[in-house]
Design a protein around this nucleic acid. Structure first.
Lengths: 327, 327
DNA sequence: TCAAAAGTGTTATCCTTACACCCATGT
DNA sequence: ACATGGGTGTAAGGATAACACTTTTGA
């Protein structure tokens, strides 16, 4: 067994950040190269300089605030990606790029003008339209995604993947349909299934498109490199984590009404929540406390204002937002 | 904003694997440089060669089975570590090493003779003696760890960390004591607290030892580089994941009794479980099915044999082992 | 016959869900 | 006064926790 972890291969390390914010009940993600450009959007990314920064996170915070003007709040490492479609050819002479994906949350005090040119916040559901079930089950799923996936499955219906699941079963488990549920945390798996089926633009770019790709039509806006995969990982992680850590408050203003909190939770989860039970779950979890103030001008009865109770961090091991059932 | 993720800094990428197995109800980890050597143990690690292997995981499987003789079953990426104590000096002329940590599970068919020389399986609680509460609360906690940590806290009792928690609160939350619990998933946080307090050998090596380190005595066997941190991450992840994914069966033989399953679950969790409720939780979760055979020679009444039901993967979104309360 | 391990039944308690209803304001 | 959103009460159902008990073998 070798004990050296030195590699003799040309590898470059970059940090890529999915920087999320919420405005007007819409979850946003910071991208370079906005829609008016020809090119696909990209997540902000930068090099890791081990001499200048002791940790990845310190490096990340520095170049993000320098280059985008957005100060980061909460930061969390997601995953390190090394296999990127078209760059996987052995005869490729370009250096291989390893990208370490990060999730960051910011409070959206940053207005468009303060951002560096080329950077802008875009709704994250522009990249994953099938993930937003707040209004209703997106028609795209029944009309485009499922027909194309079913044809893909029919070509090889019983082939199991690494976990022993056939294509049919994976489709049912991830996108629902008859007796299947749509689990909000499976954002990454759904994107990867669409990529594997060759139905997203990134698959075409990587030479793995299905003949069905044009029939299905564009399934969300594509991103450069594997950035849409990193964003899918970020959304999955955030949807899961908010249930057992109070990360949602990194996206809320200092004080807020319970309704505002619910609408942000719904925006992130991509589904409606049962209002009465949501209130009770939040209050019984003791993650918020009333300020005593009231919010007027919300249309109906004034709502009590709340703030996050930092003390829960000491009181309970997993203080998140129990979300309960759909509304 | 730059769109290039090319770095101009010398960075090398290595893969480091925490390869776990269970034998005789003891969780084991594969290490190079066993105890009879002078040097601290190390996890197996190797270079990532992007030209030879399309993904990290493929590369990992290849060199692990080549170099250790152990075939990997389940494999999962843990975290990418870049900040390693003593190498953090800006004047350091050595290339910086980024290590991508992996958790792998193997069924322990591999006997010692088949392993490459220098490789061996060692009980993981040798590195984390405070994590094994199966017999009782480890005396080490009350006798060595808490006194040293309390002195450390007393030097700066109110300084908050990034999450706003003081040293006192972090000690209580992680190691219990009066009214605090000992949460089995916090393995990484406990190790990092001990490192931050300068009480583990790795802190001395990195020039961050506390004056209290000799008074506290050796707190578990040290490892080279940041490998003990990677192992702590692996144990944390495994303890958490087995509750919602059926990963424990990657460590079990094809057929097993419910008692054997419970003892492996207890070994991994480091705590006893309530037998009757464990049985009911397992059976009601429908993750196992009876084979119809019986196991004799277990000392008392023969036990029914069970096998893992792969079908649960299709039936439920999060089929893990509910563990219930302590025994 | 007894110890040891396997396995079953039953109740108390807690949490989630579901549903019904009342409250306070602006227009 | 009434629409709108804010807010409370409570009972049904399901799951876990706690405890008592029976069964089957080997020594």
């Amino acid at each position: 067994m070798t004990h050296s972890i030195v590699t003799h291969f040309p590898v470059e390390v970059g940090l890529t950040a999915a920087i999320a914010a919420v405005r007007a009940d819409e979850p946003l993600i910071l991208v370079a190269e906005a829609a008016h450009n020809e090119r696909a959007a990209a997540l902000p990314s930068g090099p890791f300089d081990p001499l200048a920064h002791r940790t990845f996170e310190i490096g990340l915070r520095e170049w993000v605030s320098e280059q985008t003007g957005a100060p980061l709040g909460y930061v969390e490492q997601l995953y390190t990606f090394g296999d990127r479609g078209r760059q996987a050819r052995a005869d490729d002479r370009e250096p291989h790029v390893v990208s370490i994906g990060y999730l960051a949350l910011t409070r959206m005090g940053v207005e468009a003008a303060e951002l560096a040119s080329g950077a802008s916040f875009r709704p994250w559901y522009a990249f994953f339209p099938w993930e937003d079930w707040r209004a209703e089950r997106p028609a795209l799923i029944e009309q485009k995604i499922l027909p194309a996936l079913r044809k893909w499955a029919a070509r090889d219906p019983d082939r199991p993947n690494a976990y022993g699941l056939s294509r049919r079963e994976r489709i049912r488990l991830l996108f629902g349909g008859e007796n299947g549920r749509f689990e909000d945390e499976n954002v990454l798996d759904r994107y990867q299934l669409l990529y594997e089926a060759g139905l997203v633009e990134e698959a075409r770019r990587d030479g793995r498109a299905s003949p069905l790709i044009d029939e299905a039509g564009p399934l969300g806006a594509p991103m450069r490199h594997d950035h849409r995969r990193i964003l899918a990982t970020a959304i999955s992680r955030l949807r899961a984590k908010m249930k057992y850590r109070p990360v949602i408050f990194e996206l809320m203003p200092e004080v807020f009404t319970l309704s505002a909190l619910q609408r942000v939770a719904e925006a992130l989860q991509g589904r409606r929540l049962h209002t009465q039970n949501f209130r009770r779950l939040v209050e019984s979890a003791a993650v918020v406390e009333a300020t005593g103030e009231m919010s007027h001008g919300t249309g109906g009865r004034p709502a009590a204002l709340f703030r996050f109770r930092r003390e829960v961090l000491q009181e309970r091991p997993a203080p998140g937002l129990r979300l309960g059932v759909r509304g």
